[in-house]
Design a protein around this nucleic acid. Structure first.
Lengths: 205, 205
DNA sequence: CCTACCGATCGGTAGG
DNA sequence: CCTACCGATCGGTAGG
């Protein structure tokens, strides 16, 4: 009941809003996130929910940031201790597949959905999603370049082509799992990745 | 001004609504299609627009069907005269790439967007989108099976794996073009397809 | 964080 | 095909 406690309460409230917001947005879309629905789900008033954010766009931006934190923690951090280059690239492919196969958000991969939803809608939300996509792309490219330099991928391998094809396998896996509910797509994605990398890929946490 | 003319007028009105509806939905999403916005764009009243359809869901379903007609005409029909098997499969990959690179709808590929938007929303719209996806999948598989039977793809080639990877390249191309606005993705998609098929793939109309 | 309220827009209907 | 209208919900604000 001290000032410190009410700051902590406010932080908890904000965290609860963002956690539920990422879950709802993964299913309904970021644009389909409504203040009234979120407030009702959390037993709050609309104005109370909007308070920490000011307006809907700021809420959307912070939902994207919260989802990015989860994505990074789920996929990249578990493999950060693998040797740079091919071992880490193969490991991140495995944890990426795992993230899609055992979805953290009820609507599957938040970023695949957000990228598709906002690819044609200019504005701060699109810019932020694109910024995270670029960051992800650069991380993958760094590992691919290192793998080529180490001789773990054939000389002359084009890192951009490799990352393009790996991304394609992830997107095909997402569509197969979400739209077609075809769990057989998990080994197909791993097989395609393994062929591109020359080493086994398995869904790992 | 005869009855025949007013039937023709009604058909033209319906066609205009569906043509504009597919365009708007490709950008705003099928759920973001609103009756008021569509009516304002076309200079009609909301009730006049809703008349031919009865309710929004029926409008959505008929927009999906109209988009499917365009998709089929744009991608499959131009290559229907190619020999069945590998030649037709390579040709359809080329016209598929072309469809994405020179988008017919302002929001890019209607079906990639609709599949992502409705993969988590049960109901008639999802069922219809899934039905078209299945139909597309079966067409591709038929050509792949024929290519294997003809000896134009290595014996032991798994048609499902092949189609999964081809679809991944299409999805990666869509994301690169729409989100990242990276036109360099067109040759990357073609290169990946050519490696999978063993023959050149070029974007063709 | 709340209640109470704002104008705008939603999908849809009545009646012509 | 239209006007006129319905209740519900949208994002957001005033005031506490």
């Amino acid at each position: 009941m001290s000032p410190r406690s009410s700051l902590a309460d406010a932080a908890r409230t904000r965290a609860a809003i963002l956690a539920h917001g990422t879950a709802v947005a993964s299913v309904e879309g970021l644009a389909g996130l409504t203040i009234g629905r979120l407030a009702a789900d959390l037993g709050m008033s609309k104005s109370g929910l909007l308070g920490p954010f000011g307006n809907k766009e700021t809420l959307q931006l912070q939902v994207v940031e919260a989802a990015a934190d989860v994505f990074w923690r789920e996929i990249w951090e578990p493999v950060a201790d693998r040797p740079a280059g091919l071992p880490r690239l193969a490991a991140v492919c495995g944890s990426w597949v795992r993230h899609l196969a055992r979805p953290v958000f009820p609507g599957g991969c938040f970023f695949i959905a957000a990228a598709s939803e906002f690819d044609d809608r200019p504005g701060p939300v699109r810019d932020l999603v694109l910024g995270y996509a670029d960051r992800w792309h650069r991380e993958l490219r760094g590992q691919a370049l290192r793998a080529v330099a180490d001789g773990d991928l054939p000389a002359g391998t084009d890192p951009e082509q490799l990352i393009f094809e790996l991304t394609g396998l992830v997107l095909a896996l997402h569509q197969a799992l979400r739209l077609r509910q075809d769990a057989g797509a998990v080994p197909r994605a791993c097989q395609g990745m393994a062929r591109l990398l020359g080493v086994p890929v398995r869904p790992t946490a």
